[in-house]
Simulated scan of single mutants.
Amino acid sequence: MKSLTKMSLATAAAVVVLNLSKPSPAAAPERPFASSVRDDGTLSVMTYNVKGLPFPLAYGRAEALGEIGNRLRKLRREGRQPDVILLQEAFIPEAKAIARRAGYAHVLLGPGVKDAPRDVAQPDTFVQNASWSRGEAVGPQVDSGLVILSDHPIVKASRMVFPEAMCAGFDCLASKGVVIAWIAVPGRAEPVAVADTHLNSRKASGVPVARANVAFTRQVEAMRTFLRRQVDPHADLILGGDFNIGGDAERIAATRELIAGGQDAAETADGPPDQQRDLAAIRERNKDKLYHRGLLRLRSLEVPLGEGTGKDAFSDHLGYVAHYKLS
């Protein structure tokens, strides 16, 4: 939410409350797409920060988000749609509507404002030094912006919001956290756990980097604990989202071995020759991640909506897909 740094908290909060709807029920596709659902022993998962921020924090987003949905729908018509998509910053209705426009039958919304923990028994110095003018200490005003879309049934779900002791700056205005969907993949006796997250930003949070990094490190540890408690250690797990790691050494160290035995798809596999510039940009930025563990075998990467320029015309992130073979 970089634009928040240019606005007062009161103005930003008012705009957000007026422009963002509460989480809506899972959207049904406009028409069934059963024939396009694959059952071939593979699973493809996309992570995509769609920049679904309201006006005036971002401009022209309704049109751009609609185009993202159209592009994903085109992939479906070609039989190339990802089986699962992890969205971040899907705050406004037009962002959540990507599910309907792209034809996904199963949709899971991430945590909302009501899911945020309200009480801190023993506030530490970090909480006591919260800055109201930078969005801290007022509580989240909007949902997490996390949405999981799936062609396969979602048979179970779990959500967690980072408490105020684990957020810094303007990020505290959103109910950032983690959402897990257990997905019934054809041919598998047990569902695959797929988690989506969006971690605290760095400079864009509006507070000193040192403070933002404390929140980030706490979020990573909380997420590790949450995943250990929710997902069997021997089960297949995919964890994706906008991790906001970048080139920060402290953040790189904090996310090392994020899930035991896990692999970072962007650093492990490669994609088509004509997508190398897009993939290089994703790796260099080091924010959008897909980690996996278990019996999933990573085969390749793809940037299906990229244009080979290292940038996306409709978002400030490039969405990419990891293709897995189910052992």
Rank of each mutant, 00 (worst) to 15 (best):
Ile148Asp: 00
Ile183Tyr: 05
Glu307Gln: 06
Ile148Lys: 01
Glu30Asn: 14
Ala280Val: 01
Val50Asp: 08
Thr5Ser: 11
Val16Gly: 11
Pro117Phe: 09
Val50Arg: 05
Phe33Asn: 12
Glu221Ile: 00
Leu296Met: 07
Ala215Arg: 03
Met1Asp: 12
Leu86Asp: 03
Lys114Trp: 14
Tyr104Arg: 03
Ser327Cys: 06
Thr217Phe: 01
Asn213Arg: 14
Ser36Asn: 05
Ala26Arg: 13
Gln122Val: 00
Arg285Pro: 01
Ser44Phe: 07
Arg77Gln: 02
Leu20Thr: 14
Leu4Ile: 09
Thr217Gln: 11
Val138Pro: 04
Glu307Asp: 09
Arg188Tyr: 10
Phe162Asn: 08
Val161Phe: 04
Arg297Ile: 09
His234Ser: 09
Val142Pro: 14
Pro93Asn: 13
Ser35Trp: 14
Thr42Ala: 12
Gln276His: 07
Met46Phe: 08
Gly294His: 05
Gln276Gly: 08
Glu284Gln: 12
Arg283Met: 07
Lys156His: 14
Glu190Arg: 12
Arg229Gln: 15
Gly247Met: 01
Ile68Phe: 11
Ala313Tyr: 10
Ser315Tyr: 08
Ile183Trp: 04
Phe226Ala: 08
Asp248Ala: 08
Ile180Gln: 02
Ala168Val: 06
Pro208Asp: 10
Val37Asn: 11
Pro82Met: 11
Ser201Pro: 14
Val155Cys: 10
Asp171Ile: 04
Met166Leu: 08
Ala168Cys: 02
Ile68Gln: 10
Ala99Ile: 08
Val220Glu: 07
Tyr320Leu: 04
Phe226Trp: 14
Phe216His: 11
Ser131Phe: 06
Pro233Ala: 01
Val303Lys: 03
Val214Thr: 08
Cys172Tyr: 01
Thr268Phe: 09
Ser300Phe: 00
Glu136Phe: 06
Ala189Met: 05
Pro163Ala: 05
Pro208Lys: 02
Ala97Arg: 13
Ala28Met: 15
Lys2Arg: 06
Lys156Pro: 09
Leu296Lys: 10
Val194Phe: 01
Ala168His: 03
Ala174Asp: 00
Leu318Val: 12
Lys203Val: 15
